[in-house]
Design a protein around this nucleic acid. Structure first.
Length: 324
DNA sequence: CGCTTTTGACCTGCGC
DNA sequence: GCGCAGGTCAAAAGCG
C-alpha cells in the first residue's frame, strides 16, 4: 500500500523557499541558494548532519517546519515530547530530485547517546521511557515459550517477569518528509498492527512492524498536525536482515545499498532510502564525497562511527551533479 | 488460503 | 488512586 510516489511535490515550489543551508552544502553545486541548479538535474541529492541552532533555524525555513530551535525540533512527537536535543543528537536533511524533476525532501532527527557500557559501542536512544515497547518486548520473549490460555493472565505474569528492569531502548530515528502518502516505501515489508488517534492532532498515528521473522524493527507514521503535508516517520530498532529486493526502483539501487543494509545501522539507510526510492540513485564513483567524510563532528563520530561512510554507500546521488 | 488491515479492548506509565 | 494518552493485542474482515 505504498510506493505510488505521490509524495512528490514540484521542486520549483520547494526551491522557492530559498534555503541557504542546502545550497551551502550541495555536493555538486556550490554557492549561494540560487546556485543549486535544479532544473537541469536528472538526479541529485545531498544530506548533512546538523547540530547548531542556526542549522535548525535554516531547516525549519527550508521545510516549513514548525521548529526553529533545538528544543522545538525535538518537540516533534516522533521522538517524544519530553525529549530535548542533546549535543550528541543529529539532524539529517536531504533533498533529491528524481527523473520527473520532482523533489523529495526530508529532515531526519536522530537521537543517540554513547553507550555507557564500555563493552559496547552500540548506539541507543536517550530520553524518555517507551512503555509500549516495553510490553512488546515482554511479549516477544514469551513467544518462545508457552501457550495461551488466558491472555490476561499471561500478560500479568510476564509483567512481573521483567519488573524493575530498565528497558534498553532501541535506537530511534525520526524524520519528516513532505509527502502526500503516509506510508512511504522504504524497501522493507511492514505489517500494520495498530492505529491510534493522537491528542491535539486530526491525524492518527499508525504502527507498523517489520514482517521479517525475528526482526523487531517498528515504525510509526503520522502526519504533522501543524503541517499536514509533512509526514513524520519514526523507526525504532535495527533490521536483522537485508532489505527485501522488491522495492520499486532499479535493481542497481538495491545492489548498491546492500553493503549498507548489512550494517547494523539503519538510520541513514532509511533516510537514504527515502531519498533514493524515487529512483534518483544509481551506482557511481565513490569519489566526490569530500564534504560527507567530514560530516560528523568529533562527538558524532564517537557515537556513530560508520555514519559518514554509510551515507556514502547509500547516497550515491550526491555526486550526480557531476554525471552527464 | 495466507497475509494484511481494521478496530475495539486492554495494558502501562505518567501526571495530578 | 484516578484519569489520560500512548502503545499493543487479537479477532474479524478484507484482499489477492
Amino acid at each position: 500500500m505504498s510506493g505510488d510516489n505521490k509524495e512528490l511535490f514540484h521542486y520549483e515550489s520547494f526551491f522557492d523557499h530559498n534555503y541557504p543551508f542546502f545550497s551551502q552544502h550541495s555536493g555538486g553545486g556550490s554557492g549561494d541558494p540560487q546556485g543549486f541548479e535544479a532544473p537541469p538535474l536528472p538526479y541529485g541529492g545531498f544530506t548533512e548532519y546538523l547540530q547548531s541552532s542556526a542549522d535548525y533555524g535554516m531547516l525549519s525555513k527550508a521545510f516549513d517546519l514548525s521548529f526553529s530551535t533545538k528544543e522545538e525540533a525535538f518537540g516533534v512527537p516522533a521522538l517524544g515530547k519530553e525529549k530535548k536535543l542533546e549535543s550528541e543528537d543529529a539532524v539529517i536533511a536531504g533533498v533529491s530530485t528524481n527523473e520527473n524533476s520532482s523533489v523529495m525532501a526530508g529532515v531526519g532527527i536522530m537521537s543517540v547517546t554513547a553507550n555507557s557500557s564500555p563493552s559496547s559501542s552500540s548506539v541507543e536512544v536517550a530520553g524518555e521511557e517507551d512503555y509500549g515497547a516495553c510490553e512488546k518486548d515482554r511479549k516477544m520473549d514469551e513467544e518462545a515459550g508457552e501457550e495461551e490460555n488466558d491472555g490476561q493472565k499471561n500478560k500479568n505474569i510476564s509483567k512481573q517477569k521483567k519488573k524493575g528492569e530498565k528497558r534498553q531502548r532501541e535506537p530511534r530515528f525520526a524524520f519528516m518528509t513532505k509527502s502526500e502518502v503516509d506510508h512511504l516505501e522504504d524497501g522493507y515489508r511492514w505489517r500494520k498492527y495498530g492505529q491510534k488517534a493522537v491528542k491535539n492532532s486530526n491525524y492518527p498515528r499508525s504502527y507498523y512492524r517489520c514482517t521479517t521473522q525475528k526482526c523487531t524493527v517498528k515504525k510509526r507514521v503520522e502526519r504533522s498536525h501543524q503541517d499536514p503535508s509533512i509526514v513524520i516517520t519514526t523507526y525504532e530498532g535495527q533490521h536483522t536482515h537485508h532489505c527485501p529486493a522488491n522495492v520499486r526502483g532499479s535493481s542497481h539501487l538495491l545492489a548498491n545499498q546492500s553493503s549498507a543494509m548489512a550494517m547494523p545501522n539503519f538510520r541513514a539507510e532509511l533516510f537514504g532510502r527515502q531519498l533514493t526510492q524515487l529512483g534518483l540513485a544509481n551506482p557511481s564513483t565513490s569519489s566526490g564525497y569530500g564534504f560527507l567524510q567530514n560530516l560528523a563532528t568529533p562527538s558524532q563520530q564517537l557515537q556513530i562511527p560508520n555514519y559518514g561512510a554509510l551515507l556514502q554507500d547509500i547516497m550515491p546521488s550526491f555526486v550526480k551533479s557531476s554525471q552527464p
